[in-house]
């Protein structure tokens, strides 16, 4: 197993997660602010996750070719759901008393959002990010099929040449990666929530 693929995998996951977080937050906030947009956004991200990864990647490939861009876009689309949903739920579930108090202090809508509502809902948003990262580690495996590299390439090749040890190695690395991120982020999440 070449280390290069491990790094590539981590690269794919981290770049996509940055984008997923940004877009997820924006969409979640938008869903919270705009009632008409809400149902459309929540429905869309839900549908996106329903589409089989390979099918999604194939469709994106038509536009972006067999590149890592295709894989990153695929991962972003595929892992939007938990962040969007948690952002929306987190904002929606803030104690109305706090919202009212902020309003009473003369904060504008934007000030309320950034100074009060987002910080308060952050722990729930973070849970969404955690779920998104762990899923993207698995999703990125498909990247190999559309030329994105990563551990998927190692696994694919190992299966084709029936190389059991390499397959196991790659699988264990993937599992370790997922478990590691899950535990670390779970720990941070716990700290955030008890604060």
């Amino acid at each position: 197993m070449e280390m290069r693929f491990v790094w590539q995998h981590i690269y794919l996951v981290s770049v996509s997660c940055v984008f997923t977080t940004i877009f997820g937050l924006l969409l979640g906030i938008f869903a919270y602010i705009s009632k008409p947009a809400r149902s459309v956004i929540l429905w869309l991200v839900d549908i996106l996750q329903t589409i089989p990864v390979l099918a999604l990647l194939g469709l994106i490939m038509i536009a972006f070719g067999a590149t890592s861009t295709t894989v990153i876009i695929g991962i972003v689309l595929y892992s939007l759901l938990p962040i969007v949903r948690n952002t929306y739920i987190g904002l929606e579930n803030i104690d109305p008393g706090i919202k009212e108090a902020a309003q009473g202090m003369g904060m504008t809508k934007l000030q309320r959002l950034f100074k009060v509502e987002l910080p308060l809902s952050f722990p729930i948003v973070f849970t969404g990010i955690r779920i998104a990262i762990v899923t993207s580690i698995g999703t990125a495996v498909f990247g190999a099929v559309v030329g994105g590299g990563g551990l998927g390439s190692t696994i694919n090749r190992a299966i084709l040449i029936q190389d059991m040890p390499t397959l196991m190695q790659a699988t264990l690395t993937l599992m370790a990666m997922a478990v590691f991120f899950d535990i670390v982020m779970g720990y941070i999440e716990k700290r955030l929530k008890t604060r």
């Binding site: 549908i47 329903t50 589409i51 089989p52 390979l54 099918a55 999604l56 194939g58 469709l59 490939m61 038509i62 067999a66 099929v145 559309v146």
Partner: peptide, 28 residues
């Protein structure tokens, strides 16, 4: 998957869409 794989391998977009679209629709 056969359509999707073959499409990707042969760079045949029609095959990719032909496999991906039904798969997406089935899932939904």
């Amino acid at each position: 998957g056969e359509f999707i794989y073959r499409g990707i391998d042969t760079n045949n977009n029609v095959l990719i869409v032909g496999g991906a679209l039904p798969a997406a629709v089935i899932a939904i």
